[in-house]
Design a protein around this nucleic acid. Sequence first.
RNA 1: GCGCCCGUAGCUCAGCCGGAUAGAGCGUUGGCCUCCGGAGCCAAAGGCCAGAGGUUCGAAUCCUCUCGGGCGCGCCA
Length: 527
Amino acid sequence: MKRRVLETLQKHIDHPVVLEKPREKKFGHYATPIAFSLAKVLRKNPMMIAEELAEKLENEAIFERVEAVKGYVNLKLSAPFLDEFATWALKNEEDFGKGEEGESVLLEFVSANPTGPLHIGHARGAVWGDVLARVGAHVGKKIAREYYINDAGNQIYLLGLSVYLAGREHLGLAVTWPEEYYRGEYIVDLAKKAVDTLGAAMFEDEEKIPELADWAKEEMMALINDNLAEAGIFFDHYVSEKSLYARWDEVFGKLKERNAVYEQDGKWWIRSTEHGDEKDRVVVREDGRPTYLAGDIIYHYLKFERGYDRYINIWGADHHGYIARVKAAIAFFGHDPQRLEIILSQMVSLLKNGEPYKMSKRAGNFILMSDIVEEIGADALRFVFLTKKSDTHLEFDVEDLKKEDNSNPIYYINYAHARVFSLFEKAGVDQPAVFDESLEGLDETAYDLLFSALLLPEVLVDAYESRQLQKITEYLRNLAGMYHKFYYDHKIVGTPNERKLLKLSAVTALSLRVGLRLLGIEAAKKM
RNA sequence: GCGCCCGUAGCUCAGCCGGAUAGAGCGUUGGCCUCCGGAGCCAAAGGCCAGAGGUUCGAAUCCUCUCGGGCGCGCCA
């Protein structure tokens, strides 16, 4: 819709045009301040330019009214144009809001350590990434979803040790608990399973711990994937940190070549301060083992070798200190660090009947993503996360989302959608039967609703480009509200305008449905 | 101590690349079913936008400081 308007304007103007959303309804559907920028080029009064432009545009069929007001050109779309677009959208649901093929994006998200099940904090990043990918793909980006598995280092040994000790306890063997180990029911479950499948002998010799760790890690990855699948989240690629170290010599060599690293106190440091970091960071320890950062450097080096146009990482906000050093490494390889974008996913605090929960993976009293999915459903969980910006703290009460009434926004939207379906049923009409119906003669409120429903494509682009997915949930809630009000004010079935109003309802439902689908939620046809 | 994020209505949050009466949902209070689903609609009350300075014709929005909360500040991942 916006695209058609822009195309039409560009036919008359040889200058990039910006379209704005007017503050007030009386100014029409769109407005452009183009006359102000043209004024400088043409050395003419913006008011005059706006008026001349308005005259030319008035003959365009897509506009009903074009007005020059104080240098702005206000545009009101014509009823036939809106109607025609609506008909097309209804007949091409799959393509509604689809964008032209655009840039390729590698989106990395979740990337939780395979040392335990996903908790509620991971869920937020998981949902955000999943929906960013869905929406991005819809508006035309080629998006690949990637999970970086931190399967190297001490934590995996710790996982093995934890299972080993839990297994010994289960078997009635002597156990000395160290200071640091993973707790939680899942460790005990894992230990029991290990005893059953690998045999008790695994728990009689500490030498077996690495083997146990490897096994446990695979189990945990499978569990994590189950957790994700329950919420409808999937990945295209998995990259193992451990496998990357085979490339370390090569990458380290490049860093040396570029004078990006230096040796001091027996360690190797990267000069990340040269690219905005607070201090230089160790990449190789005294004993020669590369640090965790080294893994990330290899990972991002290889990422950029893969030739995507853009890279987006969704990280937990507790990793924000890492941004500068990773970007510094990218800069040393001669890439533009701007092509890597980090979206931070802030902490989630969960309440249950007002009681706060603490989340600590190590302590084992964290809230499992799978528990919440089971308790309130994946749809509700997705929806809460998508109503807030990702980088602000979020708090919600599980009990609120379990309510099946209007305090739960997803019901409100679904109800609007379901209402449309029940109207068609009541009228005994199939939806496609009204697709070609003309909307001529409907009142202003009907066209307001129609315009709003047809706005979805623009909302999607805006939400994706600004990485502000909450704009979609907000839009859907507003649209549902408009429809509820419209429904209340207009009798539909059995009126002379029945078929027109049914078509309008179908368009609204279409937008709600497509919007929800991109959030990973299937709209209800009946409740 | 330093860095980042945050502090907007009772609650959860939008708005924040400055612009005209600060928004939504929930909650509260009061209305609306002879009518297509009342899982809905309408209305009201409720805010010195944490505080203090500053820039500006104009600040919730930009700058500085203070207070309050969170997260980082590992050669852990």
